[in-house]
Design a protein around this nucleic acid. Structure first.
Length: 222
DNA sequence: GACCAGGCACATC
DNA sequence: GATGTGCATGGT
């Protein structure tokens, strides 16, 4: 019996239920969070977002007007604050230069074009772009992250050499392109990764435990 | 006091 | 093309 991506999804969903991602109050907040969460624990991002909320800066217009030095101080808890300030500004520059500051207009762009546009922005890589496309723009693109990598490779479901694109293709070739499915699936992978697949895996209680390869757990993969 | 977190760009070979 | 390094804060 071969394990399919659908089996894995069913098992995770049965174990954890709906994850209600992305944790944000608006599509714009999703975009900001997608940049801030780069290589950073969500808790720290949360602190930064609350700072922005209290300063009433969670709109494109307000954030676009904010001085870099002020933005740096507000997002400090999210780490890499100088770099991330520049990255947010690059994203906002794109939004205003290409779409007149309108998220609605930006998200009306077709998936392939918008993905190409986002990847051309300095500081927006594949995961950040796809997170924005899926969780803010509601477009059917599968997001791959550290946990997706780890879970798949540790179970022997993907080669260690597989890169971002290969893993994304693997999901998109096997699953119907439904926004809600992609949304929930990625969130569930992060959930199971958090609970069981960090440096010290706790595989005994993992809902995916029965599918470990015979050789057992292999070393973590980045 | 290490070690890590929902990446990415850039330098160097 | 592959590999290494800087970026920064807060929780465990």
């Amino acid at each position: 019996m071969t394990v399919t991506l659908d089996d894995i999804y069913q098992r995770l969903y049965q174990a954890y239920g709906p994850q209600h991602w992305w944790p944000a109050e608006s599509p714009f907040e999703v975009m900001i969070g997608a940049v801030l969460v780069q290589n950073t624990a969500w808790n720290n991002v949360s602190l930064a977002i609350e700072n922005l909320r209290e300063a009433n800066l969670l709109t494109p217009q307000a954030l676009h007007r904010t001085a870099p030095a002020e933005l740096e101080q507000l997002i400090r808890p999210a780490g890499y604050f100088r770099m991330k300030t520049q990255r947010l500004r690059n994203l906002l520059d794109y939004l205003f230069n290409q779409h007149d500051g309108s998220l609605e207009q930006m998200f009306a762009t077709d998936l392939e074009t918008l993905r190409t546009d986002l990847l051309a922005i300095n500081g927006i890589g594949p995961e950040t772009a796809d997170s924005i496309l899926l969780y803010a723009a509601n477009k059917p693109i599968f997001v791959v992250d550290t946990y997706t990598n780890r879970v798949l490779k540790r179970h022997g479901w993907m080669e260690y050499e597989a890169d971002y694109h290969a893993i994304q293709d693997h999901f998109q070739a096997a699953l119907e392109p439904h926004v809600n499915l992609y949304n929930e699936y990625h969130a569930l992978l992060v959930r199971v990764g958090h609970l069981h697949c960090r440096k010290k895996p706790n595989c005994d209680e993992c809902p995916l435990a029965e599918w470990l390869p015979p050789a057992g757990i292999v070393e973590p993969c980045a």
